[in-house]
């Protein structure tokens, strides 16, 4: 009896790869289709003025979405970022103003601070708030959903206390440049967004830290047994998202020339939608910054196009919700099919 040598134990799976590729490109294809549709319905959608407008609109929640990508990669979630944007915006405003007239002053003379102190204060407060939530998630193993849901209310409450319910408005020109300024035809927040994207993309794909984020999301127990510091990494991703929210809070206050406790309302919805639509799995371990950028643009295009078409804001909400559920369903469907 002659027997053939055993063939490879790995089966080639070319068609499966094609499906995987299609799944990866699906958000981009959907984005382009959506843009084509809006252009067809309202040609001025494609004007460079409007496109930059979209970019400016998405840049702030896009920055936070980049941070959220890290959190979701580790199987986490952060619902507090909208409230944190409001809180950090107010912090930036208070620092820029040197206090709140008639209520308190930060220094004896009541002098205002430069924009960079305001920005730094917002970012630090955001980072610390995020890290605190991370400690509850990682060390005390409270579900992220609960911690950040509570955080959302706490931060909103703090923002209301600081602002006493009212807005703080009117900043100097240097402060306002970050939200409203332009470099050539490009709005400044768009440039900030790009810088954040490039840094985060690099960290996630080219550093050991980024690899540990993926590993922990893919299998936390295996990550621990590989000697990765799971707790520290988990805390860091929430801190990172907090930093991004702080930066976002500063930019938003700058752009609106005003900070108030109701700012950033429901940002968490757009941010989580952007990340998930961009292909980052809520089950952790797969996803990318590039996907999040596409998801962010998709939401921006959708919101902008609906406004141009005079669709009611109520319907906009409905559509965003439907798209989130649709994107996750698609993701699960593809995973099943790949098997």
């Amino acid at each position: 009896m002659s027997l053939a040598p055993p063939t490879s134990l790995v089966r080639p799976r070319a068609p499966a790869n094609a499906i995987a590729l299609l799944a990866r490109l699906a958000p981009l294809i959907f984005l382009l289709l959506l843009m084509a549709l809006f252009t067809f319905l309202a040609p001025r959608f494609l004007s460079s003025l409007n496109l930059f407008n979209i970019l400016r609109q998405v840049s702030i929640f896009g920055i936070v979405a980049v941070g959220m990508t890290f959190v979701i990669l580790t199987r986490g979630i952060d619902l507090s970022i909208g409230a944190l944007i409001a809180l950090t915006g107010l912090v930036a405003a208070v620092v820029a103003k040197g206090g709140i007239p008639g209520r308190f002053e930060l220094t004896a003379g009541g002098g205002a601070f430069e924009w960079y102190w305001a920005a730094l204060a917002a970012i630090v407060v955001g980072g610390v708030a995020g890290a605190l939530q991370g400690v509850f998630v990682a060390k005390l193993t409270v579900p992220a959903f609960v911690v950040t849901l509570g955080g959302m209310t706490i931060f909103r409450g703090l923002a209301l206390i600081i602002g006493n319910g009212g807005p703080i408005s009117g900043f100097d020109e240097a402060f306002g440049w970050w939200g409203r300024g332009m470099v050539g035809p490009v709005p400044v927040p768009v440039i900030v967004f790009l810088v954040v994207v490039v840094i985060a993309g690099f960290v996630l794909h080219y550093t050991r830290y980024g690899r540990s984020v993926y590993a922990i999301g893919s299998n936390p127990e295996a990550a621990r047994l590989c000697g990765l510091n799971v707790n520290r990494t988990l805390i860091s991703v929430y801190a990172l998202t907090g930093l991004c929210a702080g930066l976002g809070g500063f930019l938003l206050a700058s752009r609106l020339n005003s900070a108030e406790a109701v700012a950033g309302n429901q940002y968490e919805l757009n941010v989580i939608a952007a990340v998930v639509i961009g292909g980052t799995s809520l089950y952790g371990g797969t996803g990318s910054i590039a996907g999040t950028v596409i998801g962010t643009l998709l939401i921006g295009v959708l919101l902008n196009g609906l406004v141009i078409l005079n669709v009611s804001p109520y319907v906009q909400q409905l559509l965003i919700g439907a798209i989130i559920v649709g994107a996750v369903t698609f993701d699960i469907f593809i995973k099943k099919y790949k098997r």
């Binding site: 690899r211 993926y214 893919s218 299998n219 127990e221 295996a222 371990g285």
Partner: peptide, 13 residues
């Protein structure tokens, strides 16, 4: 499966 593999990552990772 539970303690060694990172199922969503490639062999190299």
């Amino acid at each position: 499966k539970q303690q060694s593999l990172f199922p969503s990552l490639p062999i190299s990772e």
